[in-house]
Design a protein around this nucleic acid. Structure first.
Lengths: 131, 131
DNA sequence: GAGTAAATACGAAGTTTTTAGTTTTTCAAA
DNA sequence: TTTGAAAAACTAAAAACTTCGTATTTACTC
């Protein structure tokens, strides 16, 4: 074995599925499949495979419910968001989250309203820490 | 052909190499290889292959200099950072960059100093827009 | 020009990811 | 109790990624 691979992060398709499970709370293969866009033609068996892999990677657990399995995330979306941001920050922003935000704030497409919201978030957090 | 694949984003190893090229400005296979960590055992030919792929994907161009090729990014690191954030925001934050920042700001590991820096950035940008 | 050391081009092997077909199991209805 | 439909389990193959070996080319030296 060459190196232990990165099982902390989701692949593209895995993330696609987790997003549906996070929205659903929990669901069967069919439930997830039904939520995918119309033009996303994926065989039932493919969806089942992806959920099985997610279970192997321990991103979901499953329980038997009648005929089918019900899959449920073991990790909250917020926790995974934090994990992803940490990873991106490390790999592309020299491990400095601030420069990540800086890049975002400099993005021309960001509206003033969005900027205002961000400032409010920061202010609230700063107040809570010092007050 | 099943689907057009994503050539906008770098794979893990590709990003590893681009980071070195961004730091160097430009460089040969050997230059990049020399910058990788001690414990990163990679054959010269592997490095050459990765740079060749990066050239195919048009993330770098190369020019001949004496015996060797010198590779140079065609895309700035800042531009790629923006692109990555857009992608992450879309896939994991319901296309709402604000919620990405919110997640970051809520991260306990972020220092007050970092938060202050972020607020300053936002303020500056807001001032420039309205004034 | 021949020798040679370094670099490149090409491509193939090994893995992981993505997709889906086939077989088996399950459960309920006839 | 048999049967039929849906799901699960198993299997596998195509695509993408990572890695590197072999053969060739290049530029320099004698």
């Amino acid at each position: 074995m060459r190196k232990k691979k990165n099982n902390e992060l989701l692949t593209e398709v895995e993330l696609e599925f987790m997003n549906e499970l996070w929205a659903l709370g929990e669901g069967t293969v069919r439930d997830v499949l039904d939520r995918l866009p119309e033009d996303r033609d994926l065989a039932y068996t493919s969806a089942a495979t992806i959920l099985r892999i997610l279970e192997q990677k321990e991103f979901v657990t499953s329980r038997k419910d009648g005929k089918s399995h019900v899959f449920k995330p073991t990790l909250g979306k917020d926790a995974y968001q934090t994990r992803s941001l940490k990873d991106l920050s490390m790999k592309l922003f020299d491990d400095a989250p601030v420069s990540l935000v800086a890049r975002l704030v400099n993005d021309d497409e960001l509206t003033d309203e969005a900027l205002g919201t961000i400032r409010a978030l920061v202010d609230r957090r700063l107040k809570n820490d010092t007050g």
